[in-house]
Amino acid sequence: MDVTQKAREVVSSAVGAASRVLPGNRGGAGAARQTLTISRSAEDVLAAWRDPLVVSRLLGDLGRAEADGERWTFTLTAGQGATVEAEPVSTTAGVEFRRPGPGAGQGQARDAEDDTEGGRTGPEGSGGAVLLRVGTRPAPRDLGTEVTCEVAPEFSAGVGAVPFTLLYRLRALLLTGEIPTLRPNPSAREEER
């Protein structure tokens, strides 16, 4: 088999696996997903997602999150300021933000498991649609934690992959205490003078 053929198969099987397991295929409109390895513990990673101030920093230009107890409100730039309500629910090694819906709000979710394709099957029927999902598993050697993030289409402003952006910022924050930013950044553009 030539290399191109092999590459095509890998890509199509990845796309196929993704389309079978992403939340969008269970009633939503499709969501993107990304894994990054972060050299910190799963506890540190998940603690970050439980803090609305941190989540707001990760969102940055993409929006913000506020919490009133277990009820979180996401204000997303892509939605032109419309708000989305969601509730964080613990999974075995992660957290899901679920919108209110049938069966929502009953605490611990049924486990989300890795399927044989390396994709994750969601917690079918145990609550409303998932807005944001974070999963963790130990990375090999001393590399820390493999963190997977999936988001619903509401997040997407059309440019750049949102899960990648969120995880890149999370990794920067956990490793360095900072998120790289350009504001303010000197330039001769009117809006930045």
Binding site: S39, L143, V159, G160, A161, F164, T165, Y168, R171, A172, L175, T176, E178, P180, T181, L182
Partner: peptide, 27 residues
């Protein structure tokens, strides 16, 4: 460089994993 990520710790500074605010454009 950031001095903290896998690449900085392995002396491959231009590959730093945390200092590119526009990483999503390059990815």
């Amino acid at each position: 460089g950031c001095g903290e990520c896998f690449y900085c710790r392995n002396d491959m500074w231009s590959l730093c994993d945390t200092t590119n605010p526009n990483a999503p454009l390059q990815q």
